[in-house]
Design a protein around this nucleic acid. Structure first.
Lengths: 165, 165
DNA sequence: AATGAAATGTTATCCTGTAACACACTTGGA
DNA sequence: TCCAAGTGTGTTACAGGATAACATTTCATT
């Protein structure tokens, strides 16, 4: 089961299932579209899905290094470029980081909520909101290519313990 | 007159007036709130307002260097930090750059449209859209601290000559 | 003048991302 | 089977963005 799009992951959710589901989804999408999910690309996607927290490119690099690969930055950035281009991951501009996309292949007009405290990110794709953005663009006679909607704050769990640590 | 919030600047608009207006606004806001608009802060704001294109921190640095100041990165970043904290500029995460805020002091729930071709940025503050975001956050039980809404594409003028150069 | 807080200067370094070029591996056709 | 062309990867070197840590100055107020 994919990480429920539209809600923060429950405390004890089966994360291995998230990862498996994401990889299966990627395999299916690549098969359908004749794309090559090479070993590196697959591994980078897998590492990004290790958690629901956006990963920096150099974090990924270090994890790969820990496995003996020792790739250089361009290798990782190329894999990320591929994953971004085909909607398998999102870039979080406000953090220079990358997070798995919960709905690969369904266009990329997502809104992403990121917790300041635990860093968990959740994506939404609110059609009403997207239409509103498009309408604003139309009023400006602006032609949208890409949108970035990132909301930072506290997730439910962290808001609950806001006054602790 | 401030750059019309909510529309792309007209071809022959009086840009000196934009700059003057932005600086006057900043002076007023700082006076009201007992903030110190020091020489550097003022100069950085002025440089950012030189155009409606977001400026990188190191661009600003170079311009200051060209005037004999030769400041170091932290100096510029501190000025930017001040200007951001008091709503005088926006950070454009998707470009690592900064642009003047057209409505200082009115909260910072803005949407920014940026042209891929000429880089001009225009800000909007659509209450309906902001309420929609807030509503999505409420549904998630997420507490918003800050939002980033950046839309990239082609401004009216550039869309017009899209098939030329 | 003396004091404490805020602002700036300085140095060094870290993090993020890419250019440029070499090599290897598919894949389809001669 | 071998060759070409395209795609993917390796490697080196560097550009660009941002901050830590500490020294010094400036300012408002006593």
């Amino acid at each position: 089961m994919n990480p429920q799009p539209g809600s923060f992951p429950a405390a004890g959710h089966d994360h291995h299932a998230c990862v498996r589901s994401a990889l299966r989804g990627a395999e299916r999408l690549c098969a359908e579209q004749g794309l090559r999910l090479t070993a590196i690309r697959r591994r980078v996607l897998e590492l990004i899905w290790q958690s629901h927290r956006p990963s920096g490119a150099y974090e990924i690099l270090e994890q790969l290094a820990g496995e003996g690969h020792r790739p250089s930055p361009p290798t990782v950035y190329r894999a990320l470029e591929f994953l971004l281009a085909h909607g398998l991951v999102h870039r979080i501009s406000s953090r220079n980081a990358f997070v798995g996309c919960s709905r690969p292949g369904q266009g990329h007009m997502a809104q992403i909520f990121i917790c300041d405290r635990c860093s968990v990110a959740v994506e939404l794709a609110d059609g009403t909101l997207n239409r509103r953005i498009r309408r604003n663009a139309d009023d400006l006679h602006f032609h949208i290519r890409e949108q970035t909607v990132e909301i930072a704050g506290l997730c439910p769990a962290c808001a609950g313990r806001a006054n602790e640590g």
